[in-house]
Write a protein that binds this DNA or RNA. Sequence first.
DNA 1: ATGAAAGCGCTAACAT
DNA 2: ATGTTAGCGCTTTCAT
Lengths: 362, 362
Amino acid sequence: MPRSAQINPPAETKPARRTSQRPTIRDVSRLAGVSRMTVSRVLSDPDMVLPATRERVLKAVADLGYVPDRAAGSLSSRRTGFIALMLPTLTNANFAAVAHGLTEALREAEYHLLIAYTDYDMAEEERQLRNLLARRPEAIVLTGAVHRRTATRMLLAADIPVIEIADLPSQPIEHAIGFSNYQVGRTAARYLIDRGFERIGAIAASPDGDVADHRGEERMRGFEDELRLSRRATDLVLRHGSAPVSFHHGAAAIRELLARDDRPQAVFAVSDLSAVGAVMECQRLGVRVPEDVSIMGFGDFEIGGEINPPLTTIHVDFRALGQRTGGMLLDLLSRNAEAGSGEPRIVDVGLRVVERASVKDG
Amino acid sequence: MPRSAQINPPAETKPARRTSQRPTIRDVSRLAGVSRMTVSRVLSDPDMVLPATRERVLKAVADLGYVPDRAAGSLSSRRTGFIALMLPTLTNANFAAVAHGLTEALREAEYHLLIAYTDYDMAEEERQLRNLLARRPEAIVLTGAVHRRTATRMLLAADIPVIEIADLPSQPIEHAIGFSNYQVGRTAARYLIDRGFERIGAIAASPDGDVADHRGEERMRGFEDELRLSRRATDLVLRHGSAPVSFHHGAAAIRELLARDDRPQAVFAVSDLSAVGAVMECQRLGVRVPEDVSIMGFGDFEIGGEINPPLTTIHVDFRALGQRTGGMLLDLLSRNAEAGSGEPRIVDVGLRVVERASVKDG
DNA sequence: ATGAAAGCGCTAACAT
DNA sequence: ATGTTAGCGCTTTCAT
């Protein structure tokens, strides 16, 4: 191929006192005898380059073990390929499933998930949010409903698509995809009332300062509202310990409830984890489920279906939620390239009672 | 403050046709009437700047809602603040705990975890690895022991600290922190042999092409070796279904084992998940644990301690593993700034049998 | 089909 | 204590 016959060295010969030893696009271009742009094209849009040139470049890339630096690419192209995801915790099967589903949906589109989690702490949410935004994600996904004002402001200022998931907020920041935790509570109460129970209880964590499970509390609010509407007492709704709940929580809470004079006939647990813990504790106490007490959970965790008796629960498809979020994201990001980002989208994925054997008729 | 009296506009006045609306360091510098470097200093090393100047800059930052672009910063400083973490899956409580522990350890040092997972697929590991390296992490943590050759080569070429975790590889790439899965198997077998059992079985997933649970298979190898050393038969070691295992796996596998003429007296499950599933299935079948069959698991998942009878298992502290990895990382990255990175470090966090009620003496 | 110039938004290194 | 210069490693844009 013709190379310019100038006396001064061409650009790609420019020496550099580099700190790192990793090859750059310039090293590849020199080795292949092309300009940096040609290397860039081979890597991003191979058909734009003559096959012969392309092969030469590809060989140079392989020989050097060249891996492009996305930070540099992002800076130039203004596309980072990051999607930010903020979760309360990773050590919850349902949230982990969301992350899993999302990653899958985004994998082909070459987006990379940036995960942060808050440990149910709103101050931490704000800190994490700032860190995330510094990475210039092209969109942000977070568990919805309650944020601090400054957090909301930062979100708005970022000027990227925002999707709130899991909890359907009454005032979404922009897009939302999830279900109503309030509705979960009402549904659970309705279900137990319809089974004919009179003394109905619940177990949840107590709301506690900055570290709180707002989602769980919403479920309890719905639960109590529905009880009241049916003229049932709400004094068997127990707030015990602090979030996040787990097996022990349920065990301790059911013990407390069973010790009461007006022991409940049926109990709704804020999470399957608590519910399973409660069932296990009943086994140990010789209290039969559901004959002596019916127990119902939320979240449809795998373990719930495996215990004896299997747990009646309320199911939300978190993995599908993650995948749908991924779909919406892809759509948002592609049409963002064309026209205005369009209307906020609110999707209720709904919920359903999964009837198993831990609840009988009252 | 004195500004140069040149006719051409000084640098900070330079107009830019920017695509994005987000404020840059230049906007802040203009508003505060200082140079960009001063802004940079206020944000990274505030004490270096006069209090009065600092306040002015901070106000400008707040007024504009300025969030620095880390991609640009990384490019310039050659420090991305990323640590890469590659896991088989996020939907396993123990791996999630590793991620959790690691994040905690790194949080203060302002490192950001880049998580990828392979779904136990080695081809995917390679793809993910390339994506991760393109983000120029300062170190990489991965679940150890088995990698493809090209993956190992990429890791070496990246010239950053590599820590293999969970599984202690026989030939570590560099640093390693974990335990020996082979030893887990031997320990389990030894424990059951010492309890006096003769017919000892095990349940695991069958190794299956590219998608395989090498760690689980290692455990089985150790288990079988120990059985042989004690002249026990290994024909009750059952490979059933495919990884990753869960409750159903254990239920199905124990059914198969119990149906045999030479039904085992004791069974080691490759994971607590399988073990719990097995115990639950026994409950349903009316097979008493441990009277009719003893069951032992691995991983010490929370649920194992909650069921009836509580599960005897082998414990590895994954969260501590994550935290220790974080500590090693911090140390490696700081001393990397000083001298050579030093010797490879291999840490065995060990394991211990947690004796509960699901195993009795044979 | 390929290349040259310019610049993305920062910070290291060297002034002053 | 603060400013200036010169890039970091890419991609955009505009030539050719």
